[in-house]
């Protein structure tokens, strides 16, 4: 779904000019705007997980959760991605993707950009070479000056089973979006790994930590997941999680993705859900595996609860979002 209507920015204009050179006859998408990434066809699902704190999943009041609790998070990591269809050629979407990631460090209660590792920001063209036959030839011939401005990602490579995507525009667009997602994940992982390598205060990561082995095994990386397309509970456990009150967490369980590193996780209710939807103020926290999961989960829960102030308003996800993450997003929006 397209959202908003804006005239093309400088990057879009440059990309359009480049594509017109490379692919004569392409048409420009008038008033192209960033795609709403929620349009992706993720299907909500329930998955059971292994409980590591007790036998059954239960609600636990976080001890010591007061107004005066102190957060030990020293920095925040988040990324952004923007996908914009800037043109088409016989129905094939020509996509400009922008990805970025940054770590903002807290110094004297104010957030500044981490000086050790500069923020990442990339703009690439996501094009299905297979359905743009002249493109590969053009790129091979080379046009260095223009080519340097934008890297090109082929979104029509075969998948793990060797199947190529169809020429259906929606499928091709979905491929581009996935590719942009991966770019963003890669940037975030790079920064998270750099933080873990340096050590220091715990890093608040917006999202999971399981993609990277180094991050998933680091004590300094804490993932906080706001979206719940996948809930790692079923049956009674689901009712327990949905019934969590403000300041309560679930028992710790282990998430073991097939292609990722196993991490420990639990649900935490940040805000009173009374009168709201079931997932209001609910986050899932990921940390590396450890022996003292109860103490560690309590401690990290207190930190995350402490990060609920100040509010992340006016962001619409303020019920789950910490102010530090909003700050990173604003920063990336400003520089991208």
């Amino acid at each position: 779904m397209l959202v908003g209507n804006s005239s093309p920015d400088a990057a879009s204009r440059a990309a359009i000019r480049l594509l017109m050179d490379w692919l004569p006859g392409s048409s420009v998408v008038e008033g192209s705007a960033d795609l709403d990434m929620s349009s992706r066809a993720d299907q909500p699902q329930l998955i059971s997980a292994d409980i590591v704190e007790g036998r059954t999943l239960r609600a636990i009041r976080v001890p010591g959760a007061t107004r005066t609790m102190v957060s030990e998070f020293g920095a925040f990591l988040d990324g952004i991605q923007r996908v914009r269809v800037i043109g088409r050629r016989f129905g094939v979407p020509l996509v400009l993707g922008t990805t970025g990631a940054a770590v903002r460090v807290r110094v004297n209660r104010r957030l500044v950009t981490w000086g050790h590792h500069a923020p990442k920001l990339e703009q690439k063209l996501y094009l299905p070479f297979r359905y743009l036959p002249t493109l590969a030839e053009t790129l091979r011939a080379g046009s260095p000056g223009k080519y340097d401005r934008f890297q090109v990602v082929d979104t029509s490579l075969p998948d793990a089973s060797g199947a190529y995507p169809s020429e259906h525009p929606t499928v091709l667009l979905e491929r581009a979006i996935r590719a942009v997602d991966r770019e963003r994940d890669a940037l975030e992982d790079e920064l998270a790994e750099a933080w873990c390598a340096v050590g220091g205060a715990p890093l608040f990561i917006d999202g999971g930590i399981a993609r990277s082995e180094r991050v998933a095994s680091s004590e300094n990386a804490i993932g906080v997941i706001k979206s719940h397309f996948t809930l790692y509970v079923e049956g009674e456990a689901l009712k327990t999680v949905i019934g969590l009150a403000r300041g309560e967490r679930s028992s710790v369980f282990q998430v073991t993705p097939k292609t990722r590193t196993a991490v420990m996780s639990w649900y935490l209710r940040l805000r009173d859900p009374e009168g709201r939807d079931a997932l209001w103020g609910l986050v899932r926290i990921e940390m590396s595996k450890c022996e003292n999961s109860t103490e560690r989960a309590d401690e990290i829960s207190r930190w995350v609860l402490a990060e609920t102030s100040p509010l992340a308003l006016p962001d619409g996800r303020w019920d789950k979002m910490s102010y530090g993450i909003r700050d990173v997003e604003e920063f990336l929006r400003a520089i991208s």
């Binding site: 807290r106 209660r109 957030l111 402490a306 700050d327």
Partner: peptide, 11 residues
Amino acid sequence: TTAGYAATERA
């Protein structure tokens, strides 16, 4: 009075 406990100052 609780404003002083906020972990982060607003931008």
